[in-house]
Amino acid sequence: MTDLTPIIQMTDVSRIFGDFRALDRVSLSVLPGERVVVCGPSGSGKSTLIRCLNRLESHDSGTIIVDGIELGEDTRDIRAVRQEVGMVFQQFNLFPHLTVLENLTLGPIRVRRMSRSAAEELARNYLDRVHIPEQADKFPAQLSGGQQQRVAIARSLCMEPRIMLFDEPTSALDPEMINEVLDVMVELAGTGMTMICVTHEMGFARKVAHKMVFMEAGRIAEIAPPEAFFSNPSSARARLFLDQILEH
C-alpha cells in the first residue's frame, strides 16, 4: 500500500429499487492492494454495493470511479472497467456448455485478443494456482461445488484484473468445501491483489482483511480495522450481528 490514490472511490452512491433504498448515500474508498470485507445482515445492500463496482447494477446518484474511470452510461467505459475487475459469484455461474479450459480462455481470447495457445497456457497456469490442473478438460457439471468455485476464481484471474470482487463466494457450498475455496482466496490475498469480499466467513476476514465494512439498511454503519471491529464494534447493530453469527 505504497500508492495512496484510491483505486476505487465511491462518493454518495445511492441505488433505489421502487421505494426501497438498496444503497443510501454510500461512500467508500479502497487503496490498491487493500483487502476489504463487507458484512451485514441480509438485505443490507452488500451485494448491491459490489455489483455497482462493475456496473452489473447501475447507481441512481453519486459517483463511482474505478481505476481512474468514472462509471456511467458509456458502454466502452463499463467494459474497460470490467476488464480490470474480476467477479466471483455466489452461484459460480460457470458456462455449462464449455469445458473448464474453455471457460477460462473465453475472456482472454475474445477480450484480451490473446492467441488460443497463449490463453490456454495462461489458463493452465491459473488452474495450477487454484490446485485443479487435472480438471481442465471436464465440464463444470462434473466438478464438485468447491472445485467449480475455484474454476470461477481462476476464470476471473485469467483476465489478470487489478481488483477482485467476491459476492458471498462460499454461501452456496457444502460445509466441507468451504475451506478449499477460502484457502485459494487467502493465497490470492498473499499476492497483493486488491480484494473486496462480501462474506460471513469471519475467520477469513480476521486473517486477510485490512478493513471491515459493516452495512445496515443500505448504509455503511461502520468501517474499522478487523481487530477493532471484532473486539469492540462501535455500533450496537454490529455487535448484535457479530453475536449472532459467532454464537456457535
Binding site: 474497460a80 470490467r82 467477479m87 452461484q91 455461474n93 473465453l106 475472456g107 477480450v111 476471473s156
Partner: peptide, 14 residues
C-alpha cells in the same frame, strides 16, 4: 439464467 449473462459481462465480453 441471468447469472450466465452477468458472468459473461463481468469478463468484459461485448
Amino acid at each position: 439464467p441471468r447469472g450466465q449473462r452477468e458472468a459473461a459481462q463481468s469478463l468484459g465480453l461485448p
